[in-house]
Amino acid sequence: MPEDKELVKKTLAGKQEAFEMIVQKYQQPLLNYIGRTVGEYELALELTQDVFIKTYSSLHSYRPCYKFSTWLYKIASNYIIDYWRKKKIKAFSIDQQSEKEDSLPPIQLPSQETSIYEKYELSEIRGKIETALAKIPLRLRELFVWRHINELSYQEIAEIKDLPGGTVKNLVFQAKELIRKQMEDRG
């Protein structure tokens, strides 16, 4: 498959097939990201379509010095935040941190009791992760999804959100601990 930058160039020159190749390449990762972030499949499909339409209409503003996938995820992230804002649901900016969230929760040393990781099969643990994921703040959820579902590097996530790499790492760890805590609370 040709490189993203080449496909963008061809799309801007009027070749529809080039944009279709971009869509086919990114539809799965983008749906995974949006789906896991918003938590509703139908809504995720709709938002994924909207993000691609927005990407197409902003293609002229894409600068090839940036990685295309980073630029695409940035559009998607802003679109989702705008969507929740319009829906009047509180979606924190990544920079807004409450005092409570400034530091990671302290390590919870496991007790001698059997933990959920020993009690359940991997498939059941996956189900519990999905449920717990929906309960954590949006700003942490999207970082977690990028890192562990889209398998982006910390550096890529840092570029998408314009944050230092260290901050991204800490926030991803914080997301994981919150998910684990949700899972343990619910048994």
């Binding site: 869509v23 799965q28 379509q49 990781y117 643990i125 992760i129």
Partner: peptide, 26 residues
């Protein structure tokens, strides 16, 4: 175990006609 479970979460299913419908809209 937690990370292993996370990294093996199944992908959401993209409808087969997703890109065709999208291209029709654009």
């Amino acid at each position: 175990v937690f990370i292993k479970a996370t990294e093996s979460l199944p992908s959401l299913k993209v409808p087969p006609d997703f890109s065709r419908q999208l291209m029709g809209q654009i």
